[in-house]
Amino acid sequence: MTFSLLLVALIIGHLLADFYWQPMSWVNDRNTRHFKANKLYFHVLVHGVTSALIITVWEYTFGWQQLSSVLIATASIMVSHYFIDIAKSYSNKGVVPFLLDQIAHILVIIALSIWLTDNSSFMTAINNMLTDPKILWVVCGYLIILSPCAVFIRMMLERLTSNFSSTGSLPLAGQSIGMLERVLMLSFILLDQFAGLGFLLAAKSVFRFGDLSASKDKKLTEYVMLGTLLSVSVTLFVGLAINYLIS
């Protein structure tokens, strides 16, 4: 309980300081001037003050009331945030550096939360989760419907729609849309929310209706229908199989 409380409080503090209390001018200054950017130090200070307030309240309410723990944890967050943001400022500013940046910050917060709460049961919970067949079957299902399923559908479509070219579309757009679609469908199936599955298919049909009705190419309509039905069929099979295995 105390671990989860401290963890979520620190994550909320991180989100506020990183996204709501950091103007774009500070981000641009950091990306341009890197470690020479004055705004970077202001940003780190905002994180430090926010974290210090949260840790102090937690420490003197649920913890061991040690000021040294507050200072060490706050300093760790500030120093780690400084170096992580400096590393990000030299990146290409894409999605991957953004995700790695946020993951690194969250990992620091998790480590400090474990240290401050002395939560020995945390590793036990992680071990139980990693050895739980139900969780592993769910992870296996999501892995199946992503890349392996995309390869299978592409091979089937190439076999059934030879000499067809989907020109005018973004590279890998169909594959990316299909992956997101299958992730949502599998989630609905595992949650036993088949109404959400119907809503997703209806929404996709509405968005694609204009393209298909305006198109003179019958092959395009058949291609989209085949891809959708294959994606739904495979995801349904995987989802129902996993529900059976974990029940």
Score class of each variant (00 low, 15 high):
Y20K: 15
W21D: 07
W21N: 08
W21Q: 10
Q22R: 03
Q22E: 06
P23V: 00
P23S: 00
P23Q: 03
M24A: 07
M24P: 00
S25H: 07
S25Q: 12
V27G: 03
V27L: 03
V27Y: 04
V27D: 04
V27R: 00
N28F: 00
N28S: 13
N28A: 12
D29P: 02
D29M: 03
R30Y: 08
N31Q: 12
N31D: 10
R33V: 12
R33I: 11
H34K: 09
H34C: 06
H34S: 05
H34I: 09
F35D: 11
F35A: 15
F35K: 15
K36R: 15
K36E: 09
K36Y: 09
K36I: 09
A37F: 02
N38D: 13
N38G: 15
N38W: 00
N38Q: 14
K39H: 12
K39A: 10
K39F: 08
L40H: 04
L40R: 01
Y41E: 01
F42I: 14
H43E: 08
H43F: 05
H43L: 06
V44C: 09
L45H: 09
L45R: 10
V46E: 02
V46C: 11
H47M: 10
H47C: 07
G48H: 03
V49Q: 07
T50E: 02
T50G: 00
S51C: 11
A52K: 06
A52W: 07
I54S: 01
I54M: 02
I54V: 10
I55N: 02
T56K: 06
T56H: 05
T56I: 09
T56P: 02
V57I: 10
V57Q: 03
V57T: 03
W58G: 03
W58K: 00
E59F: 01
E59M: 07
Y60R: 11
Y60M: 10
Y60F: 13
Y60H: 09
G63L: 01
W64R: 15
Q65V: 14
Q66W: 15
Q66T: 13
Q66D: 14
S68G: 12
S68N: 14
S68Q: 14
S69Q: 13
V70E: 02
V70H: 00
I72K: 07
A73N: 04
T74I: 04
T74H: 07
A75Q: 13
S76A: 15
I77D: 01
I77A: 05
M78E: 06
M78A: 08
M78Y: 05
M78W: 05
V79A: 13
V79R: 07
V79L: 14
V79Q: 11
V79E: 08
S80P: 08
S80C: 13
H81C: 02
H81R: 08
H81N: 05
H81M: 02
Y82V: 02
I86Q: 08
I86S: 04
I86K: 10
I86V: 14
A87L: 15
A87E: 09
K88F: 00
